[in-house]
């Protein structure tokens, strides 16, 4: 098992969310849920992060920001779409400026729907993301050995 699964640092980006999901993401870090038990730390730096939590839908304004943060993150990395807006743009799907869910901008590994997404759902999604992270770490190792 890779050490990545024991120390997943997350970066959180609020695309055009109503803030409902953002509050739930931060609630997961508070004493009630205390995700630091699993080694999860909220970092403000994409270069230090392993898991990218995105809330809200992608629009013309923020698609570049999401792509930029994703590109700055270092492999192996995982993207979790938090909330129904991040999954599929939710009730905003037919707004004139909304492109869609996060998967319209970057590859998404885990979807955590909900309006707002429950902290339990976020933790579940991150734990599911750890499995993906582990696979990606193995693939990277194999790739390095081959090279």
């Amino acid at each position: 098992m890779s050490y990545l699964t024991k120390s997943p640092w997350v970066i959180h980006y609020d695309a055009s969310s109503c803030n409902g999901c953002d509050i739930e993401v931060l609630a997961a870090l508070c004493p009630g849920y205390d995700v630091e038990r699993f080694g999860i730390i909220n970092t403000g730096n994409p270069k230090h992060a392993d898991i990218f939590l995105v809330t809200g839908s992608v629009n013309e304004q923020n698609i570049h920001v999401i792509k930029e943060i994703y590109d700055q993150m270092i492999e192996p990395k995982v993207v979790v779409a938090c909330g129904v807006c991040a999954c599929s743009a939710g009730i905003f799907h037919d707004c004139y400026n909304v492109i869609g869910g996060v998967d319209q901008a970057i590859p998404v590994d885990v979807y955590a729907p909900g309006c707002a997404v429950r902290p339990e759902a976020i933790i579940d999604a991150v734990v599911q993301g750890l499995g993906v992270l582990d696979e990606k770490a193995k693939a990277l190792k194999a790739q390095k050995k081959g090279a």
Binding site: L4, K6, S7, D34, E75
Partner: peptide, 19 residues
């Protein structure tokens, strides 16, 4: 809060070496 395991800093460093 409960907090991370005692060896969490070690896990963090091992993870950073895997990146």
């Amino acid at each position: 809060r409960v907090g991370p395991p005692l060896l969490q800093p070690y896990y963090d460093v091992r993870k950073l070496l895997e990146k």
